[in-house]
Amino acid sequence: MRRSGGAELAPPPGLPPLTGEAQRDAAALCNALMTMRLPHRLGAAGPDAFDCWTMLCLLQHRLFAREVKIVSLPQAPRAAMAEAFASYRPAAEQWRAREGSPRHGDGVLMTHKDAPHHCGVFLDLDRGVVAHMAEHGGFSVDDRQALRLAGYTQLRFFQWASVRDCAPDLGLE
């Protein structure tokens, strides 16, 4: 998987094979990633560390066959990595705000006092969880209550949209 600027997004070795069953695949992948205890490192794109955006890209690619535009650090400040859903044009063309309840595979944008811009992927497991790469603790899968208790607030959900589904002029130059 190519990253903006030519770097590769490299999955860690030993990920479980996909079965075609969405929830089973998501649970198996999350369990494998938690077992690996991969650290968060800003700008990392695998295979031994990731940041929240590159983990979102890995999960989207692996579970949903989606090629998410990756914001490279030389092109954008840290805030733009997570705000890409709404503000970074190549990624904003792929996402739009979710109306109503989140669905399996939606992108999640959230804030935390220590990380004002953070993202993950909503998965329809155990009544809804967010898989994300936490700065302190690495890969994590948390329900909304656990996210609130950990200090994550203002969860916003974004659905995948093909470029042709989006408005022609997003006003994001």
Rank of each mutant, 00 (worst) to 15 (best):
A146V: 10
P102Y: 01
L59Y: 00
G107M: 08
R3D: 11
L155Y: 09
S87C: 09
A115H: 01
P116Y: 08
A82P: 12
L9E: 07
M55N: 05
P102H: 01
A80Y: 12
A115F: 03
D169W: 04
W160G: 05
P16H: 10
P16Q: 08
A86G: 15
L63W: 00
H40Y: 15
G138K: 04
G5N: 12
R62V: 15
P74Q: 13
L147E: 12
A131W: 04
A7N: 06
D142Y: 06
L29P: 00
L125Q: 05
R89T: 09
S72E: 15
D106N: 09
P39R: 10
A91F: 04
S101W: 11
R78T: 14
L18D: 04
H136R: 11
L58A: 02
L109I: 10
L59F: 04
R37M: 06
C119A: 13
M81W: 11
A28Q: 05
A26M: 02
A7R: 14
G105F: 05
R89N: 10
C30V: 07
R37C: 07
N31K: 07
I70N: 01
P47L: 06
Q75T: 14
L29A: 01
A91T: 11
D106C: 05
A32W: 06
E21P: 06
A150S: 15
P102Q: 03
K113C: 09
C57V: 12
A79F: 07
E83D: 15
A167I: 09
V129E: 01
E99W: 03
R164F: 07
Q154K: 11
D142T: 03
V129R: 01
Y152E: 10
A82K: 02
A146S: 13
E93P: 01
V71F: 01
R96G: 08
A84S: 15
R24L: 14
D142C: 08
Q159T: 11
A150M: 07
H117P: 08
K69D: 15
A26G: 01
A10F: 06
L9H: 01
L170H: 13
P16R: 12
P47Q: 09
A161Y: 02
S4F: 12
S4Q: 15
A49D: 10
P77G: 15
K69L: 11
A82R: 03
V71L: 14
P47G: 05
R37G: 08
A44R: 08
V130E: 03
S162C: 06
D106A: 03
L59N: 00
L58M: 09
K69F: 15
V141D: 00
G105L: 11
W53P: 01
P13L: 12
Q94T: 07
V141R: 00
V141G: 00
R96T: 14
L29S: 00
N31I: 00
R148V: 13
